[in-house]
Design a binder for these strands. Structure first.
Length: 862
RNA sequence: GCGGGCGUGGCGGAAUUGGCAGACGCGCCAGACUCAAAAUCUGGUUCCGCAAGGAGUGUCGGUUCGACCCCGACCGCCCGCACCA
């Protein structure tokens, strides 16, 4: 028997698929369409096991849907702009484009070795001129439609990368890439007005439009958007005071207008214009504001930070209590980025306000009485009261519930003309400006006379200039230092003007690539997408990627779809009908005696003990963690493919854990997958040409009923499990089937041929290469990947006899065999007649018999 | 702090959603083949017990003929957000 050799077989079939253009998408609109997409990779240079897991899942779905008769679109591309290419340019002197395209070539080669059923004709990289030119066109359309805004704003400035970060890119107050503490800086920035569409983005989370999304992702988006309803109102300065900035009032935002009568101070953010105004004229104010801005925004800093305030020489009038004045503070715990950057403090019913009030000896006036408390004796200690209750100490609000008091207070403030009901969101507009070279240039020109002018469509694309890699040695944006590129005439008045030197956030690039994939790859001249093509293919039927994109990428893409719909490019506002977020690939970590990380290949595990491979020094085994270069717990897919083949790697990465959970990579597991591939070959090889020898369209008399039932039950179960994204269970069913096939060695050759023909097609989505080799050996027609999915014969899914467990007082004591047609009475009689049952019933009286046909019998006796 | 999720053998995990707990795989044990090893094959493998039997799904309690599943309290772990007014 010839040993199966993946090193020969796998490239052979990859070549055949390519020659036959098997996975090229054809415009056959008579078939139902299915668009399966995995989040496209950043071309870092090598693929890792996380990629393998992601693309294997997509590939199973793509191949399965093809076999089920769908017209499948399964493309691949590259999220190719971004900072690492510039860093590489600094280190190696290679142009970012050179580095990026070399990486793409290498990764594409590695992906092809995995045997993915991808239509490579549709490949694109976001740094391709033809892609980013269309992105510029889209941006101009958005601009025309009022979805773009340019404004001064505070930005998160990464001092190491010398660039602006979106809020989403700031993690614990540090840049997501550099890890450097983020500074605040005021800059003119480009914004996409995502907040204008926030209500629909929010509504779609709950109205069924995203029913194919995991609950946790929808929830994360809802929290991220952070909608809250409240009151926006103005507090007038007491007396006739005019503040340092010339204002006569402070506008605050609150979600608790029911506690207005408990107000004892007003506080503003250190970044608030009023605070800034006082900082200019008052040294003490200035140093307080500076101190606040120094304080980190990390978890630890926030936990430790004491509530601190700076008393301004101002007081405001209480809106409802004549003659009552409240002090005004700059306070370190007020955020400029939320609401109006100013609040009123009600210490009795807000913990932060209470901490603040205790420190500065301000009034603590309870206005919500907890149920069961007495108005005369209730007092606030060290903890504010946040629960429900009846409003008191509050004049016209007395006796109302909190909700009713909120409405009443808002109505009153509105009558007084001091403010109105207001909805606030945590979500900010999307700042898309980046001070980087390796990104899509923002197509705008700054003219002293005409202001900011869009680049006319006829002048597109705004190309990135050819540069020498030496320009990346200086921090900051090289485009700023290139007068020959920067200086252009104004498109409106022809006066000397200069180009915008910011480029787009790379999340812009990845917000519409799925729509571009839907367009005929030859038709780049007609616009960002072909609407007819997009209408046919979109939405993406199955999108697969890491949960780390649950907020950023997925929210931006949803916004982009809406914007593209409004500008006539698309018909859908939700781009991804079904989303699946897969878990990470993890591996044990290893350190040597000096605490240095070790690669798995440097370690040998012997009967539970780990030691170094080359010198037997002891190795400390650390926790199982996400594979990362820094901890060296990485295994390269290339090694595994070389050792066991692509089928084995695909099989193992899907077999061990449910797809949404993390999977631990172990060499033993990979070896086990290899064993399976060999087992399949051993089962198939002796049955050479079995499919030619038998007419499988109808079973002959005397076909092995037991084996046939196993075959058809497996078909039904595997089909169901793949549909439900339970790849681990589908694989378990295939193992069981293989075990059954082994036991049925004496079955007739027709039934075996039927079983093998089904088996090969069931494994084809997981292990496509060996499936082809087996298909050919069995004498199947054409390619296995083009063979129709096997159909389960329903008649064979019904069991012949049913084995029912019999419990006595809830403990399993026996089992009885009954016919599927037996009714409850017959089953009860059979149970009570059973010898084992009677042995256990000896000396007991039967009180009750519960029969659940097809499931169980429970006899209650005492 | 707020929101969400999870807890099952030595390990990854299954259990048709209230009906035989531990499918399937890994590992381990025994046997076959072999001079031997590897590979492969066969059998076994939740725990206690020679057995009959008993215990058992983080802990404690409840509902039910019957609970991994539902309810209550607690313990532990993971994820998201976080001085958001």
């Amino acid at each position: 028997m010839a040993r199966y050799n993946p090193k020969e077989v796998e490239p052979k079939w990859q070549k055949r698929w390519e020659e036959a253009q098997t996975f090229k998408t054809v415009a056959d609109r008579s078939k139902p369409k299915y668009y399966v997409l995995e989040m496209f990779p950043y071309p870092s240079g090598r693929i890792h096991l996380g990629h393998v897991r992601n693309y294997s899942m997509g590939d199973v779905i793509a191949r399965f849907k093809r076999a089920r008769g769908f017209n499948v679109l399964h493309p691949m591309g590259w999220d190719a702009f971004g900072l690492p290419a510039e860093n590489a340019a600094m280190q190696t002197g290679a142009h970012p484009a050179t580095w990026t395209y070399a990486n793409i070539d290498a990764m594409k080669r590695e992906m092809k070795q995995i045997g993915l059923a991808i239509d490579w004709d549709r490949e694109l990289a976001t740094c391709d001129l033809q892609y980013y030119r269309q992105q510029q066109r889209l941006f101009l359309d958005f601009w025309k439609a009022g979805l773009v805004e340019r404004r001064e704003s505070y930005v998160n400035w990464d001092p190491v990368d010398m660039t602006v970060l979106a809020n989403e890119q700031v993690i614990d107050g540090k840049g997501w890439r550099s890890g450097a503490p983020v500074e605040r800086k005021k800059l003119s920035q480009w914004f996409l007005k995502i907040t204008d569409r926030v209500e629909d983005l929010l509504a779609a989370l709950d109205d069924g439009r995203l029913k194919g999304w995991p609950d946790n992702v929808r929830l994360m988006q809802r929290n991220w958007i952070g909608k809250s309803k409240g009151l926006q109102m103005k507090f007038r300065f007491a007396g006739v005071t005019v503040a340092a900035d010339g204002s006569t009032e402070i506008e605050i935002y609150t979600t608790r207008p029911d506690t207005l009568f408990g107000a004892s101070f007003v506080a503003i953010a250190p970044d608030h214009p009023l605070a800034q105004a006082y900082a200019k004229s008052d040294k003490a104010a200035q140093s307080f504001v500076a101190e606040c801005q120094r304080t980190g925004t990390s978890q630890e800093a926030i936990d430790k930070a004491e509530k601190k305030g700076f008393r301004l020489p101002l007081e405001v009038e209480h809106p409802f209590i004549a003659g009552r004045a409240l002090p005004v503070y700059i306070a370190n715990f007020i955020l400029m980025g939320y609401g109006t950057g100013a609040i009123f403090g009600c210490p009795a019913h807000d913990q932060r306000d209470l901490d603040f009030a205790r420190k500065y000896a301000l009034d603590v006036i309870p206005v919500i009485l907890p149920p069961g408390e007495d108005a005369a004796s209730f007092a606030i200690g060290d903890e504010s009261y946040l629960g429900p209750g009846a409003v008191y100490n509050s004049d016209f609000l007395n006796g109302l519930s909190s909700d009713a008091a909120i409405d009443a207070a808002i109505r009153k403030i509105e009558e007084m003309g001091r403010g109105s009901a207001s909805t606030q969101y945590r979500l900010r507009d999307w700042g898309v400006s980046r001070q980087r070279f390796w990104g899509c240039p923002i197509p705008a020109i700054h003219c002293e006379k005409c202001g900011v002018v869009p680049v006319p469509a006829k002048d597109l694309p705004v190309r990135l200039p050819e540069v020498d890699a030496s320009v990346f040695m200086t921090p900051g944006n090289p485009l700023d230092r290139m007068p020959e590129w920067r200086n252009v005439p104004c498109p409106d008045c022809s006066a000397p003007a200069r180009r915008e030197t910011d480029t787009f956030d790379t999340f812009v690039d990845s917000s519409w690539y799925f729509a571009r994939f839907a367009t005929d790859p030859a038709a780049w001249e007609n616009g960002p997408v072909d609407k007819a093509d997009a209408d046919y293919w979109l939405p993406v039927d199955q999108y697969i990627g890491g949960v780390e994109h649950a907020i950023l990428h997925l929210l931006y893409a949803r916004f982009f779809s809406r914007a593209m719909k409004e500008t006539g490019h698309l018909s859908v506002e939700e781009p991804f009908a079904n989303l699946f977020t897969q878990g990470m690939v993890t591996h044990a970590t290893y350190k040597d005696a000096h605490g240095k990380w070790l690669l798995p290949e440097e370690v040998v595990i012997d009967s539970g003990k780990a030691r170094r491979a080359h010198n037997d020094e002891p190795v400390i085994v650390g926790p199982i963690e996400k594979m990362s270069k820094s901890k060296k717990n990485v295994v390269s897919p290339q090694e595994i493919v070389a050792k066991y083949g692509a089928d084995a790697i695909r099989w193992f990465i899907l077999s061990d854990s449910p797809p949404e959970r993390d999977v631990e990579w172990t060499d033993a597991g990979a070896a086990g997958a290899w064993k399976l591939v060999a087992r399949i070959w051993d089962a198939v090889e002796p049955a050479k040409d079995a499919m030619k020898a038998h007419d499988l369209s109808s079973p002959p008399a005397g076909a092995d009923a037991e084996l046939r039932r196993a075959t058809h039950q497996t078909i039904a179960a595997v089909t169901d499990d793949i549909e439900g994204f339970r790849f681990n269970k589908a694989i378990a069913r295939i193992y069981e089937f293989l075990n059954a096939l082994k036991k049925a060695e004496s079955a007739d050759s027709w039934s075996r041929a039927e079983a093998l023909s089904a088996l090969v097609r069931l494994i084809a989505p997981f292990t496509p290469h060996i499936a082809e080799e087996c298909w050919e050996t069995l004498g199947g027609t054409g390619l296995a990947c083009n063979a129709p999915w096997p159909a389960a014969d329903k008649a064979l899914l019904v069991k012949e006899a049913v084995i029912l467990p019999v419990q006595i007082n809830g403990k399993r004591r026996a089992e009885i065999s009954v016919a599927p047609s037996d009714d409850a009475k017959a089953i009860e009689a059979a149970a009570l007649a059973d010898i084992e049952v009677n042995r256990h019933l000896d000396g007991l009286t039967v009180r009750k018999v519960v029969v659940v046909p097809g499931r169980i019998v429970n006899i209650v006796a005492s």
